[in-house]
């Protein structure tokens, strides 16, 4: 279980998260919807452990233990995965080298044996095929020259290979055309499992047509202001965020 308790976060003295409470259970797909500037991306970065955010109050617990003191790589090894809104291009780092390093680093941190080259290749090929990723892409430097859709597919590929217990998908639909959205959503849906919790952060309702959430949380001014079923998303699509911003 991933629990966020009364989280207050500041960036350069500016308050972004304002007593946010949220619980994500294994097997659950939850959506967070909110207007621009409500703190959605901050929340995802803070969970993943990015520097430059000052947590002034509250805690984040993964299976009952605080992760606030953990480095991003330790959080990853503990089972957290952040699917980036804007995946980084890393020139000079071969995609395959990176994938192998990431998988083995996590295995090592958990005391598991490293993958053999054969096991690694097999896993990557299978995952790439499922996501319709051209194997030639894997030979290129990480994300360099990839389109928005290709980058997102690469994120889902990494999520598939790293098999996290909790995944946070930050605006996964941004920059995707309708075909790419469908492929990426299928990749995410294939990852739905009773052993995994997923937090889908989005501005628009359209992603939730493809990834149907169990729970929807509405975020405004750094807090969750309403929680309920998928019907909330439809209501938001119709009426917008204005009422929530005012109420928050």
């Amino acid at each position: 279980m991933l629990e966020i308790k009364n989280l207050h976060v500041e960036v350069e003295g500016k308050k972004i998260l304002n007593g946010l409470n949220l619980t994500l259970k294994k097997g659950e797909v939850a959506a967070i919807m909110g207007p621009n500037g409500s703190g959605k991306s901050t929340l995802s970065y803070v969970i993943a452990g990015k520097e430059d955010y000052e947590i002034t109050e509250g805690d984040i617990l993964l299976n009952g233990e605080s992760i606030l003191e953990m480095e991003p790589n330790e959080r990853a090894a503990a089972g957290l995965f952040l699917c980036f809104q804007y995946p980084l291009e890393i020139p000079g780092v071969a995609t395959m080298t990176f994938l192998k390093a990431a998988m083995n680093a996590q295995r090592k941190a958990r005391g598991e044996a490293e993958l053999t080259p054969g096991e690694f290749m097999k896993a990557v090929r299978a995952a790439a095929e499922k996501l319709g990723i051209n194997p030639d892409f894997l030979k290129r430097p990480l994300n360099v020259g990839f389109s928005g859709g290709e980058k997102k597919r690469m994120e889902i590929l990494q999520m598939t290979l790293l098999n996290p217990a909790f995944a946070i998908l930050d605006e996964t639909d941004s920059g995707l055309d309708i075909d790419a959205l469908r492929i990426v959503s299928e990749g995410v849906n294939a990852m739905r499992s009773a052993d995994r919790g997923m937090l889908v952060i989005t501005h628009y309702q359209r992603l939730l047509d493809h990834i149907v959430p169990d729970v929807v949380h509405v975020m405004a001014k750094g807090r969750i202001v309403k929680s309920g079923g998928p019907e909330i998303a439809l209501e938001l699509e119709k009426n917008g965020y204005a009422d929530y911003i005012e109420a928050a």
Partner: peptide
């Protein structure tokens, strides 16, 4: 941060870069 968020310890991420 991107590399570390995928599980690479800082030293390993720095080496890769």
């Amino acid at each position: 941060f991107y590399l570390m968020a995928r599980g690479l310890p800082r030293a390993e991420a720095e080496t890769l870069l």
